[in-house]
């Protein structure tokens, strides 16, 4: 496969996944603010998670719900706004439309054609929750079309890898919001913390799973366990690395990126929460994000840059 094609496929799915995750972050913020959370504590994380804080500050200044929503959803100058992501996903898909199944292309194209009509006024009228749900639906459709129609060939592996590299990064960032001081022993949380971790779980559709798996109450350590180590939780770091390792193994068993992914995967597969959180959840999250970025860079070097 052409290196450029692989690159487009990989970024197509990364951008689609990113759009979905921004919807999830906004969902957390919205839930918290409805439960009476302080404005800044609720909405600033949307900016920090997305790495958009400097960009926002220079354009808007004070953190307000309307400002954050406009920036994270609509702002074309913000490369990681939902609209920018959906546009980038569509542009990447457009460049490889001869390679991907037509159903996949049509779903991405239709998503963009609808998304680009959204304005501040329409977003208000429709409501943030409805819009975020719609973006999540479109992302599910994208993944379903990918999984249901693509040949299990190189194109498929690059597409899947984009999804899981991005998702691993986003889950880690989500965990990092109130990570300071959290260790494997942090079993108690004050009511405000409780609300926060419940919102985190709900944003990744993991609340019910948590309740079923962890009989004791909601605790930061429990949430960290679920979203880092449980391989049966599809948005956990472990689950993402499971997929990445398999895709890389299929693409090139002897490549450097495959070795790196294997190492990272082994730590999540065999590691214990106490040692992973030894330096605190924030340290664990930052270290994971760095290594995930290094892995992504190695994938680029091994496949996407070409000769």
């Amino acid at each position: 496969m052409l290196s450029r094609t692989a690159d487009h496929l990989y970024w197509m799915s990364r951008y689609m996944e990113r759009a979905e995750n921004i919807a999830r972050f906004l969902d957390v913020a919205n839930r918290l603010s409805l439960s009476g959370g302080a404005r800044d504590a609720c909405w600033r994380p949307v900016l920090t998670i997305g790495g958009g804080e400097p960009g926002y500050a220079s354009g808007q200044g004070e953190v307000t719900p309307v400002g954050v929503i406009a920036y994270a959803v609509l702002d074309g100058a913000n490369g990681s706004s939902m609209l920018s992501c959906l546009r980038a996903a569509r542009e990447n898909a457009h460049a490889v439309r001869s390679v991907i199944p037509s159903e996949l292309w049509e779903s991405i194209n239709a998503t963009w054609l609808d998304a680009k009509t959204i304005t501040g006024a329409r977003l208000r009228e429709q409501g943030l929750v409805a819009f975020c749900d719609w973006v999540k639906d479109r992302s599910h459709l994208f993944r379903g079309a990918t999984y249901g129609t693509m040949m299990r060939d190189e194109a498929f592996h690059f597409t899947r890898m984009g999804t899981f590299i991005e998702r691993a990064d986003n889950t880690a960032r989500l965990l990092g919001v109130r990570a300071q001081g959290v260790t494997a022993d942090t079993r108690d949380a004050d009511p405000a913390e409780q609300l926060h971790w419940a919102a985190v779980l709900r944003s990744v559709s993991a609340y019910k799973a948590y309740r079923t798996l962890y009989r004791d109450g909601l605790s930061p350590a429990g949430v960290a366990d679920l979203l880092i180590l449980r391989d049966d939780m599809p948005r956990s770091l472990h689950a993402c690395l499971d997929k990445i390792a398999v895709d890389l193994q299929a693409l090139c068993a002897s490549c450097e990126c495959t070795r790196m992914a294997g190492g990272l995967h082994a730590e999540l597969h065999f590691g214990r929460l106490a040692s992973i959180l030894g330096g605190g959840l924030d340290g664990a999250v930052n270290s994971f994000i760095d290594r995930n970025n290094q892995l992504a860079a190695q994938i680029h070097a091994d496949f996407l840059m070409g000769v």
Partner: peptide, 26 residues
């Protein structure tokens, strides 16, 4: 390209070496 099942390339995907034309692949 899709209907024929062949690669759709741009100029930057191709290069000349050793008297032949090559495409950059994974």
């Amino acid at each position: 390209a899709e209907q024929m099942g062949v690669e759709l390339v741009e100029g930057r995907d191709l290069f000349v070496d050793d008297g032949k034309v090559w495409m950059r692949t994974t």
